Amino acid sequence: MTATIAYDRSVANFIDKLSATGHVTHKSYKKTSVTLHHNAGRFSHQGLLDVWKERPASAHFDIDAAGAVAQYVKVNEYAWAVGNVAGNQRSISIEMANATLGPGWTVAEVTWKNAARLAGWLFAKVIGERPSKSNLFYHHHWSATDCAGPHMEQLYGKVLAAAQEAYDHFKGSQPVSGSDTEPFPGASFFHAGKKSPVIEAMHHRLVAEDCNRYQSSANADVWGSGDVKSYAAWQKKLGFEGDDADGIPGKTSWDKLQVPNV
């Protein structure tokens, strides 16, 4: 069975069941945004699957009326969700069950808050950018529709704030394994997802003291503004792989950047 995401809460697995319909496009794309939808109905996870069995539509996730999460499509794959090819390629779609039907199409607080929390996790673990107005969308961003409904339209500011809070939690609260958990100068000032004075100071020191040496030894062509993304790029160029290149300046990566292998 295809595995769901490694979320810190239970995720019901409908990936293979939806794939069995034959209308899931198993092609990977780089994801750069999250798009929120409403069900236009008060569906259970199974009820939504039953709808998608009858017509070629899908989303990566659904949040039901109780706030529970289900996954239907692998996060890097194409979902038939936003009515726009580029949007389906680049965005991860999250459906939300309605609490009431039209014209209000309300969504329960527990539903949209859990959708925002999941979005924060996806931005932290998959996309690598902090949620903002430029990458957290409602369905109508991509095509002519009222989705995610008038109720959610009024709540967008709260949804974005909740997604940002979740992102900061997932980037900042999880310790880095191994010796990277050891304290190092300025570590307490680091807050993941935002500019760090530690990274910024390191960046300026590297440039000022020995730019050519550091660039050549790490084969580096990225000089960022001291943010998490540019730090993660340095980690990758210095041999960090997978989740180890997380943009978090632990002691091991700090030391390695100061004295890179030549």
Rank of each mutant, 00 (worst) to 15 (best):
A218D: 04
D243G: 09
K171G: 11
W234G: 03
K171T: 00
A218I: 03
D255V: 12
D255M: 15
Q235M: 01
D255Y: 08
Y214H: 09
D180P: 14
P175Q: 01
A187P: 06
E241W: 06
E209G: 15
F189P: 01
K236W: 00
G250M: 02
L238Q: 00
D227P: 14
V222H: 06
K195N: 15
L238N: 03
G193C: 06
T181M: 13
A208E: 14
V228S: 15
G172R: 09
A208M: 13
P175D: 01
K237F: 04
D246M: 03
W254N: 11
Y214M: 05
A232V: 02
V198S: 04
S179L: 15
G242C: 11
W223T: 12
I199K: 00
D227H: 10
K236C: 05
T181W: 12
E182L: 15
S230V: 05
K171I: 01
D227R: 13
V198W: 02
K195C: 15
I248W: 11
G172L: 11
K194T: 02
S230M: 02
P185K: 03
W254K: 07
A208C: 10
V207S: 13
S216N: 14
R213P: 08
G226I: 09
K194A: 08
A208K: 07
A245T: 11
A187D: 09
Y214T: 13
D221N: 06
Q215V: 06
K236V: 00
F184W: 04
C211N: 15
D221H: 03
Q174W: 13
H191C: 12
D210W: 10
V228E: 15
K194N: 09
V228F: 14
G239E: 01
E182Y: 14
P183F: 06
V207T: 06
P175L: 03
C211T: 10
W223S: 05
E241C: 05
R205C: 10
M202K: 00
A192Y: 05
G239W: 01
A245Q: 11
A201K: 11
E209Q: 11
A218S: 04
G247M: 04
G250S: 07
A220C: 11
D246C: 03
S173N: 10
V176T: 04
E209K: 12
S177W: 12
M202E: 03
S173K: 15
H191I: 13
H204I: 08
K195T: 07
S216T: 05
D227W: 11
Y214R: 11
L238V: 01
L206F: 14
P185W: 02
S173I: 06
A201H: 11
E241A: 05
Y214I: 13
A218P: 05
H203L: 09
T181I: 09
H191N: 14
H203F: 10
F189C: 08
V228G: 12
M202S: 05
R213G: 10
Y231C: 04
D180K: 07
M202P: 08
G172S: 14
P197A: 05
A220G: 05
K237L: 08
K251R: 14
G178S: 01
